[in-house]
């Protein structure tokens, strides 16, 4: 297998090396990729959409139909991870002994033969392999998480004027919850953001995107042509396109945020949702 692999790799590489001789010169302004469509985007974006960041404008306005299905791909990847790994409560054999920890004093009690604790705020359920999180890491991450989330919201909202947008902001927001799951344990993160909420958010993000498009259709313009929203938002059609971009970016952000947490939860606990890393 190694020899076949090596032969295939060398042949492919040789073909590519041969073809690379015909590539346009490095950083050539007259190369084919930068001559046909991109000058139009660079020169007209400001008058047509009033968004200075060309990448955001092209992503969410000119190519918005494409981006909608990219979001759908991310959503379906989250669903696939769930279906591949999640072990339902019925199939999952519950452990015979359960452990509960008193939050204030740290006293741990053990209940045998499937006895359950009545739900109370003073006790939290822990796993048999539970280790107390380090105080420095716990406090440091607690302090850090609000700022990470604030930065994520800033990245989504300020994507029109600086690098950023729904994808990056959504990943940063998702990473803040993943940080909580790593620094404490998975149960803490799931208590804050339950599996049902994640599933709903994941679908809601794609739905917000598609509904924005359908709204434009209802207002008698093309699908995802945001200038149709001008009447609702009481602005001129150019500003309406800028606001429409913000709406779909929020949808993308929510979908990506939920999918990242969903994939992490399923992978780190192998579908049992008991203990994470």
């Amino acid at each position: 297998m190694k020899i076949i692999g090596l032969i295939i790799t060398v042949v492919t590489g040789a073909l590519l090396f041969y073809a690379a001789g015909d590539f346009p010169a490095w950083s050539d302004p007259a190369s084919p990729a930068s001559t046909y469509l991109s000058p139009h985007f660079i020169e007209k974006t400001m008058e047509e959409t009033s968004v200075p960041n060309i990448v955001t404008a092209v992503l969410a306005d000119y190519r918005s139909f494409d981006t909608m299905f990219e979001t759908a791909v991310i959503f379906s990847a989250g669903v696939v991870c769930f279906f591949l790994l999640r072990i339902s409560r019925r199939e999952d054999e519950e452990p015979e002994t359960r452990y509960y920890r008193h939050v204030l004093t740290g006293v741990t009690i053990q209940l045998k033969e499937g006895h359950k604790m009545p739900p109370s705020a003073d006790f939290e359920r822990i796993d048999s392999m539970w280790t107390p999180p380090d105080l420095i890491i716990k406090t440091g991450c607690r302090l850090l998480i609000p700022f990470v989330q604030l930065f994520g919201l800033y990245v989504i909202a300020h994507g029109h004027h600086s690098p950023g947008g729904g994808f990056q902001g959504g990943v940063i927001l998702g990473a803040s919850v993943i940080l909580l799951a790593i620094s404490h344990d998975l149960r803490t993160a799931v208590r804050r953001m339950s599996e049902k909420l994640i599933g709903i958010l994941c679908a809601a993000g794609v739905l917000i995107y598609a509904c924005t498009g359908a709204l434009c259709l209802l207002l008698k313009l093309n699908f995802l042509d945001y200038s149709a929203l001008a009447g609702i938002l009481h602005v001129d059609p150019i500003t309406a396109r800028s606001h429409g971009i913000l709406m779909v970016e929020i949808g993308v952000g929510i979908a990506v945020l939920a999918t990242m947490i969903w994939i992490y939860n399923n992978i780190s606990s192998a579908g049992r949702y008991r203990q994470g890393l």
Binding site: N53, V55, T56, P163, G164, G165, F167, Q168, V171, I172, G174, A175, I178, I182, M260, I263, Y264, I267, S268, G276, L277
Partner: peptide, 23 residues
Amino acid sequence: DVAFTEASVGAGVSTVLFVAAVF
């Protein structure tokens, strides 16, 4: 924009996913 995405996605989340899967 691409660098920002790679810094948050590639260096951040996918490393965590790899570590989780290896764990």
